[in-house]
Simulated assay, not measured.
Amino acid sequence: MARNAKIPRELSFEPFSGSRAVAAGLITRRMLHGPSWRRLLHDVYVHADSYDADDHRMWCLAVAARLPASAAIYGLSAAYLWGVDLLPHRRPGRAVVPVQVAVRPAARPEPHLMIKYTNLVLDPEHDVTSLSGMPVTTGVRTAFDLGRAPSRADALIALDAMLRRRTLTKTQLTAYIDHHPRRRNVTQLRELVMLSDPLSASPMESRLRLLLHDAGLPKPTPQYEVRTPDPTGGVKFIARVDLAYPQWKIAIEYEGDHHRERAAFRRDVHRFNALRSAGWLALRFTADDVLRQHGQLVQTVRQAIAERAS
């Protein structure tokens, strides 16, 4: 008999509880120890063809199969399940990112390298929901937790991404904050909610907006569409820019590595020439500017505003 004929469809794609599968008659205990299956956690297995050490969702499903009733997936893992990938990128030799789990302080869960436990009391009615059968913090609670991170930049990046994904609204998050006013770093969260914007298209754009805010500069408009009148009386689209000060016709662009590709470079040349022809000043910054030369970056923007406003 072909090997695939012995694999029940219910067990072919996602992690499952070995004891439950055996009790249901889907597989035998002996078969679980064969080459077709990979053991992920105690009593949790996945089909060998579906195993991927870097698949965070696979690990979330595996962990969810072992969670106590009061626990839930939260933090960056919850955001990932909501469609917001803020997990650190794995490099060769770097450990796989563990699943973040919130458990009650009195809980004594089984330790595992792929699980990072945090003592946290969650309201099962308002803080936890079910995604693909997994207990996960709600979009609002996930944003509430990530928006209070020690790094203000990471916190704003998370808020922008959660809002962009439409897992919550500012109104919902503000209401939740009002009901939990004494939690750690809630003052920071209130400030960042006001600054957050679902139009911010990337983590670096979020960092750039925070730099400008902290320097006391005016708030720029994300993803602004530059348009000019055309000879027929209509409006001509020129470009969409990362950040803009429309009142001074200043565009601020973050240049990622993809801009080094030949096709992207040619498009950029055309865009910036078109912006210049329309009377716009385009300021271009790289990751090095944002992360290490931010003093010079701020000075460049400040000077451009001063020149254009005079």
Rank of each mutant, 00 (worst) to 15 (best):
D49E: 10
K6F: 14
M204E: 00
S19K: 01
R308T: 11
E125D: 13
R91V: 04
A149E: 12
R184C: 00
K236P: 00
L297I: 09
R292K: 10
L11F: 06
S19D: 06
Q223L: 06
P68H: 05
A62Y: 00
M194G: 15
Y51E: 01
W280R: 04
K6C: 15
I157V: 15
P111M: 01
T138Y: 07
S19M: 02
E307Y: 13
L86Q: 05
D55P: 13
R209L: 02
A64P: 02
A161S: 08
F272I: 15
E225V: 09
D288P: 11
L211T: 04
F13S: 15
N273T: 11
V140K: 04
L283H: 09
D268W: 02
R152I: 00
L61C: 13
E10Y: 07
G234K: 03
P8E: 03
R190F: 00
T142I: 01
V99T: 03
A79E: 03
Y224L: 02
R30V: 15
L159V: 07
M162Q: 11
A107F: 01
P218G: 05
L32Q: 10
G234L: 01
T300Q: 14
A64V: 00
M1H: 13
L131T: 08
H270L: 14
A306P: 00
A278Q: 05
G34R: 10
R166I: 05
L146N: 06
R302V: 13
R9V: 14
R29G: 15
T129N: 04
G233I: 00
L131C: 07
I27D: 11
A102F: 02
V44P: 07
N4A: 14
N119D: 15
